[in-house]
């Protein structure tokens, strides 16, 4: 705390720039969603105005599919997160507690596969998925989104479970608990932070993902980002007010969630990227 007032002033200015850079575009979308249509491109831009819910009303009228698509996003995100949590908890536990050459090899395989660009798998999957009638289903996107995060998730779970003392499990075994009971009653409650940390990444990804949804959904399983993208590329001029209203509804829940669990984001990235 021996900084001069000048250093501190520079610090504050830099922090202010960082805040504006990160936060202003988001603030702008949310603010503009409450503006009257004529006010959105007011020149010079206006920051004081009478808020109106007009854009939200018109969103429901002109894009009736928006709310069903939000529901699809919710179903798919919930499904992918739950699937990821279940499979990575089991795998993370084994990797934390046991070792063999085969396990080490398979752990390396997980890291290796993380380098694969997701877009390439659409090429062989597209015809197969159509053949199996799995195109445009929630189930397919749940499986795809989960697949791309089970590796990171397992790594995070392993790191968290490793910190739990083995004595607790030994005591549970002595008391006659089986593996499933030990896992669900002893380990997982203590690894709750790990579950949160590994959920964040798959949750945010599934909620926001665009390219798989673009390729594999047409109507029934279409997600929110996709219909928002359609609003952006309509031939007869973009209706900015409606676009902002839709974007605001889509972004707020996940933004609040990420801010609420921010320290787990840090912990998860640490466990997933930096540690071996």
């Amino acid at each position: 705390m021996d900084e001069s007032w000048r250093t501190r002033a520079i610090r504050l200015v830099l922090i202010a720039i960082a805040i504006v850079w990160s936060g202003f575009p988001i603030f702008l979308v949310v603010m503009s969603s409450f503006k009257d249509v004529r006010e959105i491109f007011a020149v010079p831009p206006s920051f004081f105005f009478t808020p109106t819910l007009d854009s939200y009303r018109r969103l429901g009228q002109l894009w009736p599919a928006f709310y069903p698509n939000m529901l699809n996003s919710l179903i798919i995100t919930t499904g992918a997160t739950m699937l990821t949590v279940v499979v990575t908890s089991m795998a993370g536990y084994v990797y934390a507690r046991y070792s063999s050459r085969l396990l080490t090899g398979s752990a390396f395989f997980m890291i290796f596969v993380r380098m694969f660009p997701p877009i390439i798998i659409t090429l062989p999957l597209f015809p197969v998925v159509n053949l199996l009638g799995m195109s445009d289903t929630h189930f397919l996107l749940i499986l795809l989104y989960s697949s791309f995060f089970v590796s990171l998730g397992t790594w995070i779970m392993r790191a968290f479970i490793e910190q739990i003392p083995r004595e607790l499990e030994e005591a549970a075994f002595v008391d006659g608990a089986n593996l499933l009971q030990t896992l669900t009653r002893v380990i997982l409650p203590l690894a709750a932070q790990g579950i949160v940390a590994s959920s964040i990444f798959v949750l945010v990804f599934s909620w926001n993902e665009f390219i798989f949804a673009l390729i594999f959904t047409t109507r029934d399983a279409k997600t929110a980002p996709l219909i928002i993208a359609e609003m952006l590329s309509t031939a007869d001029g973009v209706e900015w007010g409606i676009l902002f209203a839709a974007a605001t509804i889509q972004l707020l829940p996940v933004l609040v969630f990420v801010i609420a669990v921010q320290r787990y984001v840090v912990a998860g990235l640490q466990a997933g990227a930096v540690k071996g």
Binding site: M1, E3, R8, R11, L12, I15, A18, I19, S22, G23, P25, I26, L28, V29, V204, W207, N208, E209, F210, P225, L226, I228, A229, L232, L243, F244, A247, Q250, L251, V254, L255, F257, V258, I259, Q262, V265
Partner: peptide, 28 residues
């Protein structure tokens, strides 16, 4: 180093991570 309301500042810096690419394109 020294930053007032550090948690809040970090939360704001993290915010773009929560936004879909679609909305990011809309903003810009």
């Amino acid at each position: 180093g020294w930053v007032p309301f550090k948690r809040v500042v970090i939360a704001i810096i993290l915010a773009p991570y929560a936004i879909t690419e679609v909305t990011a394109v809309i903003m810009w």
